[in-house]
Amino acid sequence: MGQNATYAITDLIPVTPGGHFVSSFGTNSLCFYNASGQFISGSKDYSSSARTPVSVPEGAWFVQFQVTPVNRLEALMVTEGDAEQTGYIPFGGSSNALPGQGKKVLWLGDSITHSGFYIPFVLKETGLTTLANYGVPGLGIRTMSDPLTAETIASADLISVFGGTNDYGGNRPLGTLADCRVDYDEASGKSFYYDVFYVLNTYIPPVSG
C-alpha cells in the first residue's frame, strides 16, 4: 500500500472475474489487474459507487482503490457479490483476519506458476500478498531458487515452490533420500532428491552442531 498526506493506494484486493463487488464508499480512481498483477483497465468514474455493485471485467482477478482523504482508509470495506453492505466486516472474514493477512510470498515454479492461474485463489483464501513471481516455463526444480538473494529471502514471509513436472518430463533420476546432503557429489549421478534439497537449502541452511 502507498500513502501520502493527500491520498492512499490500497494493495491489490482479490475479486472474481465476471462477478461483482461492493465497497463501503466510492473511489476517485479504480483499477483492475489480471492474475499476474498486470494492469487491465481503470477509471475515475466510481466516486458515486458507494454500496453499489461494481462489475468485474473478465480476466480481472484484483482491484485497487485510490482512497481520498486518507482517513477513509480505515473504514474501507470491500465485499464480493451484489448485496448492499451492512455493519462492518473486516477484510478476510466476519471477525478475524485471514491467516496470511499482511504477509508476503515469493513464488518459485515453472510455467504453471508463471501463468499465475492458481495464485489468486491462494491469495484470496489466505490473505497473502505477492512479493514477486519467479516462475519460468520449462524450469526444473534445481534452478528454481537461483533468482533468490539474501535480500529477497529476508523480505518474504513465505516462499512457495511448485515444480516437478518438467523434471518428470525430462526423465530426471529420482535418486534416494540419502542424496539430500550438502556434500552430495553430482558427478556420481543426477538426483531429483538432491535438487529439492538444494533449493530448500538455499533459504533454509542446515543448523550446524
Rank of each mutant, 00 (worst) to 15 (best):
F21P: 02
F21H: 05
V22L: 00
V22P: 06
V22E: 02
S23Q: 14
S24P: 12
G26P: 11
G26F: 08
T27H: 08
N28I: 07
S29M: 13
L30F: 01
C31V: 07
F32K: 01
F32T: 03
Y33P: 00
Y33N: 01
N34Y: 05
N34Q: 05
N34A: 01
A35D: 12
S36I: 11
S36N: 15
G37L: 13
G37D: 05
G37N: 12
Q38S: 09
Q38D: 00
F39R: 09
F39Y: 15
I40E: 02
S41D: 06
G42A: 05
S43A: 11
K44S: 15
K44W: 12
K44N: 15
D45P: 04
Y46I: 00
S48W: 10
S48L: 11
S48Y: 12
S48G: 12
S49V: 05
S49I: 03
A50T: 01
A50K: 09
A50R: 13
R51F: 12
T52V: 09
T52W: 04
T52K: 12
P53K: 09
P53F: 00
P53R: 05
P53M: 03
V54N: 01
V54G: 02
V56F: 02
V56D: 02
P57F: 04
E58N: 09
E58P: 02
G59R: 00
A60I: 10
W61V: 04
W61C: 05
W61E: 08
F62N: 01
V63W: 01
Q64E: 08
Q64D: 00
Q66E: 11
Q66L: 13
T68S: 13
T68I: 11
T68P: 07
P69G: 06
V70D: 03
N71C: 02
N71M: 02
N71I: 04
N71W: 06
R72H: 11
L73Y: 12
L73I: 07
L73A: 08
E74V: 11
E74I: 09
E74D: 15
E74L: 08
A75C: 01
A75S: 15
A75H: 14
M77T: 09
M77P: 08
M77V: 11
M77F: 04
T79W: 01
T79N: 14
E80N: 09
E80I: 06
E80M: 11
E80V: 05
D82G: 06
D82I: 06
D82C: 03
A83L: 13
E84I: 08
E84T: 13
E84G: 07
T86W: 05
Y88N: 14
Y88P: 10
Y88D: 09
Y88C: 09
Y88G: 09
I89H: 14
P90M: 04
P90S: 04
F91E: 12
G92L: 00
G92E: 03
G92I: 03
G92R: 08
G92S: 04
G93E: 06
S94M: 12
